[in-house]
Amino acid sequence: MTSVVLAGGGTAGHTSPLIATAEALREAGVDSLSAIGTSRGLETTVIPAAGLELDLVDPVPLPRRPSVELAKVPLRLGRAVAQARDILRRRRADVLVGFGGYVSLPAYLAARTMGVPVVIHEQNALPGLANKAAARFAHTVAVSFPDTPLPKAQFIGLPVRAAIADLARTGRTAARVEARAALGLDADRPTLLVSGGSQGARSINEATVAARNDLLAAGVQVLHVWGAKNFTDQALVRDETTGAAYQPVPYVPAMEQAYAAADLMVGRSGAGTVVETAVVGLPAVFVPLPHGNGEQARNAVASVEAGAAVLVADAELDAARLVAEVVPRITDPDTLQRMGEAGTTLMSPDAARQLAEFVRAAQRPRRRRGVGHGAA
């Protein structure tokens, strides 16, 4: 029996590749899979929904500035490491796979003290603190983007859900008619997908509404995914001359369907969006989140350099800029084809399978680690 424990949580950026990797590990014959998270993150709902048992440790936020909270970190970290050790021992873990976030650091440290091999996946071009720390002693370090600055980094791309990988293999063209019908879109119109991610993006939403009439006048239909918290009394709008429609929705349950329906996407450049659009060959206009340490802009670099996407700074996005970036591209089939092909050559749909292979290769015979599993 092989037991793999996966650690990651907080946001979809951590949980989505975790779930995709778990799918691949199941297919590879791993018979015991579980996850470690905290009570604060998205993992409390999406991990059990994916059929994984979830164990919780106390969250250990890492303040960036000196404060009372920073002084509490050593005690909190020690408690979380002890909790993670108990979980790894109870699960009889053969390998720990970490995806970053608050939960990963105590899990990494617990695994190291117990002799449990660690496999890391870093989804962003700029790595987080937990993965930076653990990369020094990890068995394998896999990354989503070329040139991610981590020791021993191996570029494999980002593990994506089976539905996304399947779309990449069959092609968006084959799925387009059915996807547009399911989403209430016209079958033959240039189609723009706008999405700011699961939480939405105010600046992108505002620019899209301001550009709506010009886009519809150009014959471009728009599927605008607002994000549930931002969606209020938005209504369908149709241009009487061209017949093109603006269709606002709070969310799309199956993003692979939206990807298949679209000719071009406007959105943030979180790792998941950047990799998924490249994998399925969907050209994109990326508007990086202007906060944090700049990881979203870095995430988009490889796609932009390959010609699969263009980058617009958040401060520069308005209605005129959005129309100028979208209309010439979405109405030019040759441009769309070149951009789509550039993406598919950049990113593989098989990252989850490759990461699963790394995990299986990291496993050591259990009898050689008996002391570690029983250590106090």
Rank of each mutant, 00 (worst) to 15 (best):
A309T: 02
M255N: 09
V323G: 01
L126W: 01
G294F: 00
G270M: 01
A260T: 06
E53S: 15
D314R: 00
S269Q: 05
T344I: 13
A182T: 09
N205Y: 00
F358Q: 11
S34E: 04
Y259N: 09
G307R: 08
D350A: 13
A297G: 08
G101C: 05
P48A: 08
L192K: 00
G372N: 12
D58N: 13
S198L: 07
A20D: 06
R298M: 13
G340A: 08
G171D: 13
A211E: 10
S34D: 04
Y108W: 11
H121V: 08
L75C: 03
E206N: 07
V5D: 00
G101E: 04
V57Y: 07
Q247I: 14
F137S: 13
R91H: 05
A111T: 05
L289K: 03
D147I: 03
P17T: 08
G270I: 00
G98P: 02
E23D: 14
P248Y: 12
Y246L: 03
V279D: 00
V220R: 02
L150M: 03
L215Y: 08
L336E: 02
G370F: 05
R92P: 01
L52F: 02
G41F: 12
L355S: 03
L6V: 10
G292K: 03
P66E: 12
V359C: 14
T344Y: 01
L62Y: 08
H121A: 10
A71G: 09
N124F: 01
L6P: 05
G98T: 12
L311Q: 14
V5H: 03
A165R: 07
R268G: 00
R338H: 14
S144C: 02
V68C: 02
A49Y: 02
T11A: 07
R202I: 04
A168H: 06
L317W: 02
R64L: 14
R180H: 05
A125Y: 01
I120E: 02
A125R: 05
Y246C: 03
K132G: 11
P59K: 05
H224W: 06
D31T: 15
A133D: 07
L317N: 00
Q247C: 10
T241G: 06
H14R: 12
E276P: 00
Q234Y: 07
A22M: 10
A84G: 09
D94R: 07
T44W: 02
G51E: 03
L126S: 08
V249L: 11
A228E: 15
V327S: 09
T45D: 12
P248G: 12
A309I: 01
E122D: 07
